[in-house]
Amino acid sequence: MEKALLRKHYAYSKIDEEDPEEIKHRQAQFLIQKILLQADNRRKPSFLRIRMCKLKVRIGRRLRKLRKSMLLGISVARVRLYKQVISRMKTWRRLFHRGRGEPLVSLAPIFA
């Protein structure tokens, strides 16, 4: 009788060997429950957060478009300036060196 009193009602006996399939099944059930709990605890995105995300995307697209147009404009301006400089140089070359190297306008040396 004393042994019965010493024994606790929540004591359990250890199982010598467990079935490997049962162990795998238990682990799978545990992981499934864990993932389901995590999915339940996740916050749903608020309306404001969704709006902000969409706004960021729109701003990013506009900035990208602006940058591309600026680069195109700069490259076009560079080409135009290059063409102008080349045409002016050709004009000056023709003005000062006619045909075989004789200048059209001869400039007298300043210090003679």
Results as ranks from 00 to 15, higher is better:
108 A>Q: 09
21 E>C: 07
29 Q>R: 14
35 I>E: 13
96 F>K: 00
106 S>C: 03
64 R>W: 05
68 K>T: 11
79 V>G: 04
87 S>M: 00
29 Q>P: 10
9 H>C: 08
66 L>V: 09
61 R>S: 14
39 A>N: 11
36 L>T: 13
103 P>C: 03
102 E>L: 05
35 I>H: 03
52 M>A: 12
97 H>Q: 09
74 I>P: 00
51 R>A: 15
104 L>D: 08
12 Y>I: 00
95 L>S: 11
93 R>P: 00
20 P>G: 00
17 E>M: 02
13 S>Q: 15
71 L>T: 05
9 H>D: 12
87 S>H: 05
79 V>Q: 07
43 R>G: 06
17 E>V: 06
86 I>Y: 08
51 R>D: 07
99 G>I: 13
93 R>Q: 11
40 D>T: 00
96 F>R: 01
74 I>R: 11
22 E>N: 12
17 E>G: 10
47 F>A: 14
107 L>P: 00
98 R>T: 13
58 R>V: 15
62 R>E: 14
81 L>N: 01
109 P>W: 10
72 L>F: 10
3 K>V: 15
5 L>W: 09
71 L>D: 08
63 L>Y: 07
83 K>I: 08
90 K>T: 02
106 S>G: 10
55 L>M: 04
102 E>T: 00
74 I>A: 02
101 G>W: 00
112 A>N: 11
61 R>F: 11
5 L>G: 12
38 Q>M: 11
60 G>Y: 09
55 L>S: 09
53 C>L: 15
112 A>S: 07
104 L>F: 03
